[in-house]
């Protein structure tokens, strides 16, 4: 049982719980997909779970200000060797039994959703492994499994796009409605989303439950307040080809699910490929607004294009990268290039 194998984490949990085992079920994650995690069992009952996508008990208690970081660290240092951090916090009067139990219960179901969510992942059961928190609550493994499955159904009922759960969150620059109402968590998420942070980053940063975070993100996506990551089609997805950036005003209209975005679709933002080393630090060239009369762009205010994020080492499309670099890019030539690229966009 100890070597890593690929299996359904939920099924293995049922098995080890049925054998009344003690130890840790470690589920491997993979970037861009399931985050993985670990579920700790004692005598067949779940006592704790953790995942990179969900804040643990420590993060929940310290980021909310319930415990000072120093208090938490002291308890962690003193209690970890004997696996009695939870007991210690109660004995020292930092938390009530009720608070700790509710916090741990919340953290277990939250992390278990991420750890057990994938249908197939590298899983490993480490017999005898304990957790530093100790046994605060005991949860039936079947209930954890059932709840994890139910939660993924809940998300699809809100808005069926699983990519939202792992892709970096980008708020739309302009709300689709004149007046919108947000919950406190939705507001926090929009304020902290910067196009780089993933839902897991946001949950950790804000000390908010991972599931509650992606639940609100799916709602925001349904409302059209965050950009929806496009489904990637493995057949037409050429890893060598880079997706060109779109002008912001030309993003797919809210409520329309678009298939894969191909290169010849929609107005493209010109890419300036020839820049000197010093020009790299400069902000992107202020390309004039290409008013094409296109019904999609019509009526939208021009915003500077976002630069395409390219995988390290990825090549630019041939027609753009093929031209030789310029030797002496004088100020006039840069200007001419800008005009040329702007004219190209008008074609």
């Amino acid at each position: 049982m100890s070597p890593t194998k690929t299996a359904a984490p939920g099924r293995l949990l049922t098995q080890v719980a049925g054998e009344r085992q003690t130890g840790a079920l470690v589920v491997g994650g993979h970037p861009g997909g399931s985050p993985g995690g670990a579920v700790y069992l004692h005598d067949g009952a779940v006592i704790y779970a953790e995942s990179p996508a969900s804040p643990g008990v420590g993060e929940l208690l310290t980021s909310s200000g319930r415990l000072a970081a120093r208090t938490w660290q002291a308890a962690l240092d003193a209690g970890s060797p004997q696996s009695r951090v939870g007991r210690l916090l109660l004995d020292q009067g930092h938390l009530t039994q009720g608070e700790l139990e509710l916090c741990v219960l919340g953290a277990i179901y939250d992390a278990a959703y991420f750890a057990l969510g994938s249908a197939s992942a590298p899983v490993e059961f480490r017999p005898g492994a304990g957790h530093w928190l100790g046994t605060v609550v005991r949860v039936d493994a079947a209930a954890v499994n059932r709840e994890s499955r139910r939660r993924s159904r809940l998300l699809d009922e809100i808005f069926p796009n699983a990519l939202i759960d792992s892709a970096p969150v980008t708020p739309v620059p302009r709300a689709p409605l004149e007046r919108i109402t947000l919950t406190a968590l939705q507001w926090e998420l929009l304020v902290h989303a910067d196009g780089q942070r993933t839902p897991a980053d946001l949950a950790q940063l804000l000390g908010r439950a991972g599931f509650a975070t992606i639940q609100e993100l799916r709602r925001l996506a349904a409302l059209g307040l965050i950009e929806r990551p496009a489904e990637r089609d493995p057949k037409t997805d050429d890893p060598d080809l880079v997706r060109l950036p779109r002008a912001r005003g030309t993003a797919p209209a809210a409520g329309v699910t678009r298939p894969v975005v191909t290169l010849d679709e929609g107005p493209m933002v010109p890419v300036v490929t020839h820049r000197t080393a010093t020009a790299v630090e400069d902000p992107p060239p202020a390309t004039p607004a290409p008013y094409t009369g296109d019904p999609v762009t019509n009526g939208t205010v021009y915003r500077p294009p976002r630069l395409a994020r390219r995988k390290p080492g990825a090549k630019l499309p041939k027609d753009l990268a093929g031209e030789p670099p310029m030797d002496v890019p004088g100020a006039d030539e840069v200007l001419l290039k800008r005009i040329r690229t702007a004219l190209r966009a008008l074609r």
Partner: peptide, 10 residues
């Protein structure tokens, strides 16, 4: 509603 200091909706 149970108001906890840490993030929960109970």
């Amino acid at each position: 509603l149970v108001q906890t200091d840490f993030d929960s909706r109970l």
